[in-house]
Structures are given as C-alpha cells and as structure tokens.
C-alpha cells in the first residue's frame, strides 16, 4: 500500500458559494486589486521626484556641450563626449574597479569567519557582538577615514612605534599608497558585507549541520556542501552592497591616497562641482552605472543565485 497517499492528494479548496461569486462584488474586487499599488505610491513618487528625474536630467546633460560660462547647447556629436570621457579617465575607471574588487574580496575574507563565529558560537551574546562590530560605524565616514590617516601616518602610533623599535626602516611609508586606500575602504565598507553575511549565517538551521554530520560529512565537507551553498545569497548581497559604493567612493582615495590612486568618484566630483563640466561628469557617471550593471549581471550569472535571491 502506498505510504501517505492521503497527504499527496490534498483536498481541493472548497468552491466559493455561488451567490457570493456572482456579480456585484466586482467593485470591491478591483479596489482590492489596486490596494498594493496605492500602498507603493509614496515610495514611487519619492523615487521619481528625487531619483529618476535627476537621473534623467543628468542623462540629458550628456547630449549637451559647453561650460557654465559659455552656456550649454545640444550637440549631435554626443558620442564624442562619452568617448573622450572614457579615454581621458580610463586609468581611474579601471583602477576604481580593481580597488573595489579587492575591497569586496577582502571584506568577504575578513567578515565571513567573524560572522560565522558570532552566528554559530555567539550564543546569547550574538547581538552584543554584532553591536560591538558596528560601534565604530556610529561615527561619520569622514571622521573614521581621518582617523585612519592618523593611524597610518609615518610617525603615527602604529608605524612610529614599529620604526622606533627598529622593525621597520625609517623611510617606510604606508600613507598615500594604494595599500592605504584599499585598507581604508575595506574598513569603511566592512559592515556592508558583514551584515548580510550575518543574516544568512544566523538563519542557517543548525540541524542541517547535524544532518550533514549524520550523513558522513566531516566538518569541512559540511561547510562546503551545506553552509556555503546556503549562505551564498548573503555573499551575493554583501558583495553587491560593498562593490557598488566602493567603485564610486572618493573619500578614502582623497584622504589616504596620492595622485596615482585617484578613483573615478573623485574625477566625477571634480567635473561636476569644481570644473562644472556637467557633460563630462554626467557621461562618466553613466559609464560607471553601465559598467556596474554589466558586472552585477555577470556576477549573478556566474554565482547562479538568481533563484536563491529571488
């Protein structure tokens, strides 16, 4: 006899009584159908007014030519704007992408073990540990980065001490180097990676790890076959949340770097706010957006997490 034929053939949902299914309910039905959209109205209005519209204006700017002094006029030669923007600043664009990739990998490598430990071994103090990790980020971005400048400075508390005891040569420099910029960014963007990872790790059912052990998996195999696949959505979300703002970041590069570490964010900021060359700034912005979209798409395809995140 079949095991549990009962639960396989679930009873059909009861038919609605005929008198209630008839006409006369159409009005309330369509109102019900609209309700979800009405609820999103404030959010949509906000996005249109403060995100889509400015973005649209920025996009229009890329079809114009000129400066604030001579005025702007439409140009049919707008592809040239994009081309020039890219060829002039390709170094900075590529550098930004490379830095952001390094930062994403570094934050992942640093925060995964840390969040794993908190989620699995934190016990009742889990929330406390997460709070402790987040505590430095209660200070503003700029202050934190300036603090890093002090930490990394040539005669600062860290390098100075090492130099005094002779572990480093006196002319060793950390500040104003790519390493300093990447370190600062890694530090500043850590929570963006750590928190999604924590959420994914924390909701991992520990009985699944028992089951893996029961089914002949060593700790390492259980991690690779169960923990990692089930936390991939967290890795995915964390990577996006880290990579995207990292590419456009300019504060770390300006405070901790040198002219050879300038990132595309600085260039855009300078074009828009200092040089007031809106067409070039806007074109660079859209190149960046396009680049990020392509990168995210490729990443999602490679990781195959569309189903998991969906």
């Amino acid at each position: 006899m079949a095991l549990g034929t009962q639960d396989r053939s679930a009873p059909a949902p009861p038919e609605p009584p005929p008198d209630r299914a008839g006409g006369g309910r159409k009005g309330s039905k369509s109102r019900k159908g609209l309700a979800p959209y009405l609820l999103t109205l404030p959010g949509v209005a906000w996005l249109v007014a403060f995100f889509a519209a400015p973005l649209g204006f920025m996009f229009l700017f890329t079809f114009y030519d000129g400066t604030i002094d001579i005025g702007y006029s439409f140009t049919s030669d707008w592809p040239q704007t994009y081309f020039e923007a890219f060829t002039t600043y390709d170094t900075q664009i590529i550098r930004s992408v490379i830095y952001a990739l390094i930062v994403t990998v570094a934050t992942l490598l640093i925060s995964f073990p840390m969040m794993y430990w908190i989620a699995m071994k934190g016990g009742r103090r889990k929330n406390l540990f997460v709070l402790l990790m987040l505590l430095p980020f209660f200070t503003p971005f700029l202050i934190r980065t300036l603090a890093w400048q002090l930490v990394l400075s040539d005669q600062g508390i860290f390098l100075g001490t090492l130099k005094d005891i002779g572990l480093l040569s006196a002319d060793f420099k950390l500040l104003a180097s790519p390493l300093a910029v990447i370190s600062g960014m890694t530090y500043n963007f850590l929570p963006f990676m750590a928190l999604p990872l924590y959420v994914a790790l924390e909701k991992l059912d520990s009985s699944l790890l028992d089951a893996a052990a029961d089914l002949y998996s060593s700790k390492r195999e259980a991690f690779l076959k169960v923990t990692l696949p089930l936390t991939l959505p967290g890795v995915f979300a964390g990577s996006l949340l880290t990579f995207i703002p990292s590419v456009g970041d300019f504060i770390d590069a300006e405070i901790l770097g040198n002219p050879n570490t300038t990132m595309i964010g600085s260039i855009i900021r300078r074009q828009l706010l200092v040089n007031q060359d809106y067409p070039t700034g806007a074109a660079l912005s859209f190149l960046l957006i396009a680049g990020i979209l392509v990168a995210v798409f490729l990443y999602a395809r490679a990781l195959g997490t569309e189903e998991l995140t969906g």
């Binding site: 089951a211 029961d214 002949y216 195999e221």
Partner: peptide, 14 residues
C-alpha cells in the same frame, strides 16, 4: 557522528 554507522531521522527532518 560522521564516522558512525548510524543514521538519523530528525524531528524537523533537516
């Protein structure tokens, strides 16, 4: 557990 020749049906199925 992974070296024992026993298997488990968990309460939550897992």
């Amino acid at each position: 557990a992974h070296k024992r020749d026993v298997n488990t049906v968990f309460q939550s199925y897992a």
